[in-house]
């Protein structure tokens, strides 16, 4: 593990891990993890700030009936990223929604077996 990851996992005690460090069930979880590390490195938030935002998100999800077994940990992680990106004025949730729709459109028009790429035309 590199130093940034060591600090991140130390700051975030709830992170799914084994004795050697974080583990991920699916590739997107690692992508979401990497984005948080990169945004932290860029100074968008401190780990204290992140931990508080993540705790709020988990609490909200639990109140809505989430069992928080670890299986859903990175779903809360992703929601936290989206919230902070909006709160810090990087991109509003409307903008995020527009990009989601565009990726959905890109997937729809991409024949099975081809890499999916986003083009300006996908923003209908």
């Amino acid at each position: 593990m590199d130093e940034a990851s060591v600090r991140a996992t130390a700051a975030l005690p709830g992170i799914p891990r084994d004795e050697d460090g974080p583990v991920f069930r699916e590739p997107w979880e690692a992508q979401a993890f990497a984005m948080a590390l990169a945004l932290h490195a860029r100074g968008l938030f401190t780990w204290n700030e992140w931990a508080a935002a993540l705790a709020r998100e988990i609490k909200r999800a639990q109140a809505a009936g989430d069992p928080d077994t670890g299986e859903t940990y990175y779903r809360h992680w992703l929601a936290t990223l989206e919230n902070l990106v909006a709160e810090k004025g990087v991109a509003s949730s409307d903008t995020q929604h527009r990009y989601r729709e565009a990726w959905d459109h890109a997937a729809d028009r991409t024949p099975h077996g081809q890499p999916i790429e986003l083009t300006p035309a996908d923003f209908g």
Binding site: M35, V90, T95, Y99
Partner: peptide, 10 residues
């Protein structure tokens, strides 16, 4: 979709 959207924006 959410992950790709966020990554593209960032």
């Amino acid at each position: 979709l959410r992950v790709r959207a966020l990554e593209t924006i960032l």
